[in-house]
C-alpha cells in the first residue's frame, strides 16, 4: 500500500509523518514503512527507532538506511528518511445533482475512477466532501466558511450558484504530486461522474484568489 501525505509546510509535514507513522503504522500488525519518493529528506525512522529502547539496530542496504525495531510480533522495519517535495493540493470539482442521492452516486463513481490513478490522493474521508467552503466569513476568526452559494437550503437567502433543478452538491478534492497529475485526475473524475441525475459539473475557484494554479475544466475535457 502506498500513501501520499500533504501538509502546508515541510516542517509541519515532518512532524505529522513521524507522529502518524508512530501511531498508526508502527502499531499495525506485520507493517513496515519505506520512502516512496525522492526529495528533500525528513525523518521517518530516525526518531521512531528510539521506541526500540536500545534494542533497535540499523542496516544500510543499497545506500539507504533502515531501522529494525523489535515489536511483539517480530520486527518493525522502517526507513530512516522519507522524501518530501512540493505538490499541488486542493484541486477540486463540484457535482451538482438533481438530488443529494444522485450527486452522491455520481461522486462515488468519480472517486472509484480517481483512486485507480497514480500520484494523486483524495484527502477527505471516502474522497467526497459535503462541506465545501468559501474564503472568509462574517466572523473575523474564521478564514473559511460554508460555501453558501452551493447550499440548497440557502437558495433564497444568498446569491445562489445552483440551478433550479439542483438539489444537492458534493465536492471532490484532489491532492497530487504535480499539476499534471491533478489535472488528469480531475478529467477522469469529471467524466466518471457524468451520468443520470447530474445537472452540472462546476468547481470552486474562490475568485481566483486561492493558490497558484487554476485548472479550467472545459479545456481539460476537450
Amino acid at each position: 500500500m502506498s500513501v501520499l501525505l500533504f501538509a502546508v509546510s515541510g516542517k509541519e509535514l515532518a512532524r505529522q509523518v513521524e507522529r502518524r507513522v508512530g501511531q498508526c503504522v508502527l502499531t499495525a500488525p506485520t507493517s513496515a514503512v519505506f520512502s516512496g519518493i525522492e526529495g528533500e529528506p525528513i525523518s521517518l525512522g530516525k526518531n521512531l527507532r528510539f521506541f526500540g529502547d536500545g534494542y533497535q539496530n540499523s542496516k544500510v542496504i543499497g545506500g539507504r538506511r533502515y531501522w529494525r525495531i523489535p515489536v511483539m510480533d517480530g520486527e518493525f522495519l522502517v526507513e530512516d528518511r522519507a522524501g518530501v517535495r512540493k505538490g499541488v493540493a486542493g484541486g477540486n470539482f463540484l457535482i451538482l445533482g438533481e438530488t443529494a442521492g444522485a450527486a452522491l452516486i455520481a461522486a462515488e463513481r468519480a472517486v472509484e475512477a480517481i483512486q485507480a490513478l497514480p500520484g494523486v490522493i483524495l484527502p477527505f474521508p471516502g474522497g467526497i466532501v459535503r462541506s465545501g467552503s468559501k474564503v472568509g466569513s462574517k466572523y473575523k476568526k474564521m478564514i473559511a466558511s460554508t460555501n453558501s452559494a452551493y447550499c440548497p437550503t440557502l437558495r433564497r437567502s444568498v446569491t445562489t450558484a445552483l440551478p433550479e433543478e439542483a438539489g444537492g452538491v458534493y465536492e471532490i478534492v484532489i491532492d497530487g504530486l504535480g499539476l499534471a497529475e491533478v489535472e488528469r485526475a480531475t478529467a477522469v473524475g469529471v467524466r466518471a461522474a457524468c451520468g443520470p441525475g447530474v445537472v452540472r459539473i462546476s468547481a470552486g475557484n474562490y475568485g481566483g484568489k486561492l493558490g497558484k494554479h487554476l485548472i479550467r475544466l472545459r479545456p481539460l475535457l476537450q
Partner: peptide
C-alpha cells in the same frame, strides 16, 4: 524463530 522483513531487501 521468526521472520525478518529486512532480509528481503538484501
Amino acid at each position: 524463530a521468526c521472520r525478518h522483513p529486512f532480509l528481503e531487501l538484501y
